[in-house]
């Protein structure tokens, strides 16, 4: 038996918004620790991972691990039927269930909606991502700043270079109409309201497709801050963490390299 109840549907709605433009379908792996998924986009250059830890839920029960193959567009359609303050309960049989049940209940518990989502068999490749990668540069910034930088730059062109030196990050773009760049310095005072922190072991300069960096802005409502981790020649890791260590959405994006 799998049963998980979120106090407010907002949490899962936001998480799904952050991943549904990148992946069409994925296995939601349920274990005693929580709910997680990882999936690549069609060209296999971007990996999205998501975890909702058991403590994110008001009720969480998973008697034995199960994997629910879900079409992201279908689950999003069903969750549109939940008001943001409604609670969401997901129930599935752990013995080869062919559907999962979604129950939405309003705050006064006098309106209860039931939906059944058909599950799918999905063959997915699972990549092993090292947990404690030793990154050359890590930058943390308010997620609203992330949105502004990459929504602005990706309008100019799709080739975006991130260069991080001591205390400064430079984001630049080259496009058909011209080019642009933006420098972001580490904020001075620790009590700054919207801090930017930059940790550099070695300066790094890498290029990524703006289309993806802009798509990741869909995760901005999840988190006040975002962390970008870079190592020369390796995929960029971007993390949006849910409040109270309830979980996270992470993206891993292959760099553009000279052929």
């Amino acid at each position: 038996m799998f049963e998980a109840k979120l106090t407010e549907s907002t949490t899962i709605k936001r998480v799904l918004d952050a991943i549904k433009d990148l992946i069409q379908q994925a296995n939601f792996d349920c274990s005693a620790d929580g709910l997680s998924l990882q999936a690549m986009d069609t060209p296999h250059v971007c990996l999205t991972t998501m975890t909702l830890r058991s403590q994110a839920f008001e009720v969480y029960r998973c008697d034995r691990p199960l994997s629910m193959g879900i079409n992201l567009s279908s689950i999003s359609k069903i969750l549109k039927c939940a008001a943001s303050k409604d609670s969401v309960k997901i129930v599935a049989d752990d013995e080869g269930a062919d559907c999962a049940e979604f129950i939405f209940e309003n705050e006064s518990a006098d309106r209860i909606a039931h939906f059944e989502l058909k599950l799918m068999d999905i063959d997915s490749e699972h990549l092993s991502i090292p947990e404690d990668s030793d990154y050359q540069a890590i930058i943390s910034m308010p997620s609203a700043e992330y949105r502004r930088i990459f929504s602005d730059l990706s309008i100019i062109g799709d080739t975006i270079t991130i260069e991080i030196n001591k205390n400064t990050a430079c984001f630049s773009v080259e496009g058909d109409i011209g080019n642009g760049s933006l420098n972001l310095a580490q904020t001075d005072s620790a009590d700054e309201k919207n801090p930017v922190t930059i940790n550099v072991k070695e300066p790094v300069k890498m290029t990524f497709p703006g289309k993806y960096l802009n798509t990741f802005t869909k995760a901005v409502p999840i988190s006040e801050f975002v962390t970008l981790c870079l190592t020369d020649g390796n995929p960029l890791a971007i993390e949006f963490s849910l409040p109270d260590e309830a979980g996270f959405v992470r993206y891993f994006l292959a760099p553009k390299i000279d052929q």
Binding site: P43, H44, H126, L127, I257
Partner: peptide, 14 residues
Amino acid sequence: RQCQRILSTYYTLE
């Protein structure tokens, strides 16, 4: 010309 390598060139498949 720039290109992207697929992620399985960076990470191992489980």
